[in-house]
Nucleic acid binder design. Structure first.
Length: 833
DNA sequence: AGCACGCCGACT
DNA sequence: GTCGGCGTGCTC
């Protein structure tokens, strides 16, 4: 939509109203307000307002930069709108499509549009006001009625005429600033002024240019040949000429560095008017040439997949690319992105985690140079504003980013790639908007008639379901790129392994032999165990009592390094128990094993191997994870023991063995989500084994050897898993697939939060109530004892619940409660769009 | 988000 | 008696 059309939606009507001076705006304020509020546009600002522009408004006694959602002429009946104070933008900050997206996200994920705005707009563009105290000249110099503290502030005010809040805090040592200010206002010593501040500061850089009179070559040669002055200045001149030739422009920093000179020496030349210094706005984003070069050749399998995707996009909006690990999905993406750039459209490439963007960007910059930018929430605010503007103006063609990149003001996106679409990090949990970026991307794309490519080696069930039912296209890529083959998967029956104390064995003979073989070949090994800590649970040998968390009813895990019992659900630590709380005996047995214990056992069993552990406990620091991966990549480690964390990050070249020590912990017959997750984990971990010349091997140790999911993993057969799950769900009258949204009720009293949640559930149509078994322990208690007895028998109540009911035509899937946070979450199952 | 209001326990 | 904690409600 053009700016002009955007400005006046209903032109003749609005135009005449502008003449008579009655124009209103519905404005989005970046707060969690119950709805958008309406302000009056005063006559003198009417020619400059546009939907999507920021305006300065006052709410209560603070000023905010809000965004105009709509302009209209309907005077609100219930209240007298205030006037907007100012228009902050000459061109809109977002396009109407973004406003449409915000509205959808707000209604779909039950939050305010302001909260969506808050998540979308870089903080530097949101500006909120700072209070400034102004000296009241009429008060005079009589301070006799003031106490000591008030006197101090009043004196400073009289002197400086105005004070910032932060300055007052310095005068009064922070703790009780507000009461003093309030008194001063009451006594009419000062009054308060709110000032909106624009926090975005363009970065300036000094550029050096040659005085135009030396553009003539003779004159320049003359100047240089007859150089009798300082040799350093000559060096500077030569450096200048060198840089201008190779780069086209010269910054002061680059010049000084090249000539190894000081700014004083440069100033000499500037004073002589040979060189000219000039300050210009500079971009914080590194400038790269903006050409596109995609020269590699796809394998026949990739080529076929690419063509299938293109065909799918002819009549379908969304396509799932189900490609096994190392099948070269990224290369396909690159080819597709190239096509869309050539059409002049933008592309968004989403990854589930910020850490992954840094690894992929290098590969993409090779092909797309300055057309591509990274964006995620950890960027500093000024950089975010710059990318925001470049995306808005279409200067940036490709954005690589985490979920927040979806909220950028794209002008004309043609393609959104959601890589690793099954990854649950796409779902934002806290704070609002609790959106799933994958699902939101599908809606967003529909606004632009853009295409969505979902890529994964282990798709989520709901995406696969949509592909099976022809809602999405499905393209499969079953070949590893190059010479690589999928690893063989061997399943070892743990029942055949005998141990002295009848506890679960850690390593079977097969596992030990394979590890030795890998070490011998100088290859690397990954050992996977989905349990951190030392001992997953302690049990009293006399009465069978198991220590549990006071808050969560969850079994406590023993951590040897901390020498603490720890709850993995809420994180509380407890001292190690010596005495059984039930029978008073002192004999505890340690059951099972976690990563900590495995690491210890490996050091003992393979003393020559270099071992490290990667789990939540060992990689606490910001860069620990990256460092560990780097060390492992460089083969400075032989064996890596880890939890599911080892699936993240890029490929390891030299791993040829993956061991899954206790697959039983992953498998279930009744809980669908668990099986889906188990398949994903095992498939992804397996994918780490083997590369080009080396097929690689996976050993899965398990007691429950006839669990169907194991067979599917062994055959790398995702379709079989899907069919199995579909049948399973029919058996339990569970809806085939769900997309989840999250509502949290919090209250000091847990039961009140639960009641609120229950009332909401009750408001939903009976046919759509489905409650299933999630993994969280407390849920089982809630589900079994509370839910069925109480939930559906509560007395009806409340217009609030009805309001929610109107908003939701959705289905309840899980109710979980958590004592520690005294909250109840309802996760609601919806089928969007 | 802020900020005012009101309720309840702790204390000069 | 009041000070200050927190829960609740309201903002165009």
């Amino acid at each position: 939509m053009s700016a002009a059309a955007n400005k006046i939606n209903n032109s003749s009507d609005l135009f005449s109203q502008r003449q008579t001076g009655v124009l209103f705006a519905e404005i989005i304020i970046p707060l969690a307000l119950p709805q958008n509020y309406t302000w009056l546009i005063p006559f003198h600002l009417q020619s400059s307002v546009q939907t999507g522009s920021r305006v300065e408004v006052q709410l209560r006694n603070k000023k905010y930069a809000g965004i105009i959602k709509t302009l209209h002429t309907n005077k609100p009946a219930a209240f007298e709108p205030k006037e907007i104070l100012n228009v902050l933008d000459t061109e809109p900050l977002v396009y109407p499509r973004q406003l449409q997206l915000w509205q959808w996200v707000a209604s779909y994920y039950m939050c305010s549009e302001g909260e969506v705005m808050h998540a979308a707009v870089p903080s530097n563009l949101k500006l909120s006001s700072e209070s400034i105290l102004l000296w009241n000249e009429e008060h005079g110099l009589d301070f006799s009625d003031l106490n000591d503290e008030e006197y101090l502030v009043a004196e400073a005010l009289e002197l400086k005429k105005e004070l910032r809040l932060s300055e007052v805090q310095q005068i009064l040592d922070a703790s009780h600033v507000y009461p003093v200010i309030k008194k001063l206002i009451d006594k009419k010593v000062c009054y308060v002024w709110e000032e909106l501040k624009d926090k975005y500061k363009p970065k300036t850089e000094t550029y050096i240019a040659l005085n135009p009179i030396y553009f003539n070559e003779d004159k320049l040669a003359d100047l240089l040949n007859n150089w009798s002055k300082a040799p350093k200045q000559l060096e500077l001149m030569l450096a200048y000429l060198h840089i201008i030739k190779s780069e086209g422009e010269v910054t002061q920093t680059a010049l000084l560095k090249k000539a190894n000179a000081s700014s004083a020496q440069l100033k000499g030349l500037i004073d002589k008017n040979i060189l000219i210094a000039e300050k210009k706005d500079a971009s914080r984003l590194p400038m790269l040439p903006r050409n596109v070069s995609v020269e590699f050749v796809l394998s026949p399998a990739q080529e076929e997949a690419l063509q299938k995707i293109e065909q799918t996009f002819i009549d379908k909006q969304v396509c799932l690319l189900h490609g096994i690990t190392s099948s070269g999905k990224t290369q396909l993406y690159v080819k597709l992105i190239e096509q869309y750039i050539k059409q002049g459209r933008q592309v968004l490439y989403m990854l589930p985690e910020i850490a992954l963007t840094a690894q992929i960007i290098r590969r993409l910059q090779k092909h797309f140079g300055g057309n591509i930018a990274i964006y995620h929430s950890k960027f500093n605010p000024n950089e975010r504003v710059e990318i925001w503007n470049k995306v808005k103006h279409g200067e940036v063609k490709v954005v690589l980013g985490a979920r927040s990149a979806l909220l950028l003001p794209f002008k004309d996106p043609g393609l959104i790639i959601v890589d690793e679409e099954h990854d649950t990090s796409y779902k934002q949990h806290d704070p609002a908007p609790r959106y799933n970026a994958r699902d939101t991307a599908i809606y967003y794309a529909s606004l632009f008639k853009a295409k969505v490519l979902l890529g994964s080696a282990t798709p989520s069930m709901e995406t696969y379901h949509n592909a099976q039912n022809n809602k999405y296209g499905l393209v499969e890529l079953n070949e590893r790129f190059g010479e690589g083959k999928l690893p063989d998967i061997e399943i070892v029956d743990l029942k055949t392994v005998v141990t002295k104390d009848k506890s679960k064995p850690m390593f079977s003979l097969q596992m030990k032999t394979a590890i030795e073989a890998s070490l011998h070949e100088k290859k690397q090994v990954i050992i996977f165990q989905n349990r951190r800590g030392y001992t997953p649970y302690m049990i009293c040998s006399v009465c069978g009592w198991i220590p549990q968390c006071q808050h969560c009813d969850v079994t406590l895990t023993y951590h040897k390094s901390k020498n603490k019992l720890s709850c993995h659900y809420c994180g509380t630590n407890y001292p190690v128990l010596q005495t059984c709380a039930a029978c008073g005996s002192h004999n505890f047995i340690q059951k099972n094993f976690g990563t900590e214990k495995i690491e210890e056992a490996i050091v003992e069993e393979f003393p020559s191997a270099r071992v490290a552990r990667m789990d939540y406990d060992s990689v606490k620091g910001k860069h620990d994870h990256d460092n560990l991966i780097k060390i492992f990549e460089q083969q400075r480690l032989d064996i890596l023991v880890g939890t599911q964390m080892v699936v993240k990050g890029l490929d390891f070249e030299h791993v040829n063995l993956v061991g899954i020590l206790d697959a039983d912990a992953l498998l279930s017959f009744t809980d669908f989500r668990v099986n889906e997750r188990a398949y994903q984990l095992m498939e992804q971990v397996s994918g780490r084994a083997g590369r080009k010349d080396d097929k690689g091997k996976v050993i899965i140790q398990v007691t429950n050897t006839n669990h169907p999911v194991l067979k599917f993993v062994q055959a790398h057969d995702y379709k079989a898993l899907y069919d199995f799950e579909i049948d399973n769900r029919k058996l339990f009258f569970y809806p085939p697939f769900s997309r989840l949204i999250h509502i949290t009720f919090r209250h000091r009293e847990t039961h009140l939060a639960e009641e609120a949640a229950n009332l909401l559930v009750q408001g939903l149509p009976t046919l759509h109530k489905y409650i299933t078994g999630p993994a969280e322990p407390v849920v089982n208690r809630v589900r079994n004892q509370y839910l069925w007895d109480v939930l559906f028998k509560l007395p009806k109540d409340a217009h609030l619940i009805n309001q929610c009911k109107m908003q939701l035509q959705q289905q309840v899937v899980i109710i979980q409660s958590n004592k520690r946070y005294r909250s109840v979450d309802i996760i609601i199952d919806v089928d969007p769009v």
